[in-house]
């Protein structure tokens, strides 16, 4: 029942998105715009500042992720369908897992665009260790979305939710961003510093475990008004 419910929610979100691709296209466009803005700040005389690529990549992920979280849950607020989901007889945490998987899929697509783009535009050797890069992106994205999905869901019924989401989310996920940025930067050094990247990957893994557990545990009481 648990995984079936999560799968149903995910499939439903994909079906809605497939009708218009609204969230996907706006998120991708916004992510690209972020990269451009940071390019203006961090490129001097045609050459990017050292290490800037890693930071730009992760900031673009965090910003576009926040936008996508807000849009995704706005859909559940319209028509109060989130309440209809909460009335389903499955454990409520299953709904969280379904929404989380949707966010992960969305950000995975965004990253598939962002990473090559940043690598090209900033002459960054991001793909020198493709597996480690994928690991860091996956670990960081999971940590970001684990907390982000919970907070966006509980903010659905709050006032001023648009502004409260980044306010609540950013201070808590900064360690994830630090780990992602430093891990990615280690990959960019010549030669790539595998040991450091793996250490940050470990921290991301620990973070993901704790925050996923905590989110699954607190989702039900947080969603009961």
């Amino acid at each position: 029942m648990f995984f079936r419910t999560a799968w149903l929610v995910l499939r439903k979100d994909i079906a809605i998105e497939a009708k218009s691709f609204e969230v996907l296209t706006t998120t991708l466009f916004f992510a690209v715009a972020c990269v451009l803005i940071f390019a203006f700040a961090f490129v001097k005389e045609g050459r990017p500042v050292e290490d800037a690529a890693a930071g730009i990549l992760w900031i673009a992920i965090a910003f576009s992720g926040t936008l996508a979280l807000g849009r995704t849950f706005e859909r559940e607020r319209y028509g109060e369908t989130l309440r209809a989901l909460l009335l389903a007889p499955a454990p409520r945490a299953a709904l969280y897992v379904g929404k989380l998987l949707g966010m992960l899929a969305l950000l995975a697509i965004a990253e598939a665009l962002l990473a090559p783009m940043v690598a090209l535009m900033f002459q960054a050797a991001l793909f020198s260790r493709p597996l480690l890069l994928v690991g860091l992106l996956a670990g960081g994205t999971l940590g970001f979305c684990a907390v982000g999905t919970l907070f966006a869901a509980m903010l659905v019924r709050a006032r001023s939710r648009d502004v409260l989401l980044p306010i609540l989310l950013y201070p808590i996920i900064i360690p994830v961003i630090i780990a992602g940025v430093r891990g990615t930067a280690a990959l960019l050094s010549t030669p790539p510093d595998d040991a450091t990247a793996i250490m940050w990957l470990g921290i991301l893994g620990a973070f993901d475990t704790v925050f996923l557990t905590l989110s699954l545990w607190t989702f039900e009481p947080l969603m009961t008004e």
């Binding site: 509980m154 903010l155 019924r157 709050a158 006032r159 001023s160 409260l164 609540l168 009481p221 947080l222 008004e225």
Partner: peptide, 9 residues
């Protein structure tokens, strides 16, 4: 600024 129920948030 969270409105009613912000104690849970």
């Amino acid at each position: 600024y969270g409105g009613p129920g912000s104690d849970k948030l």
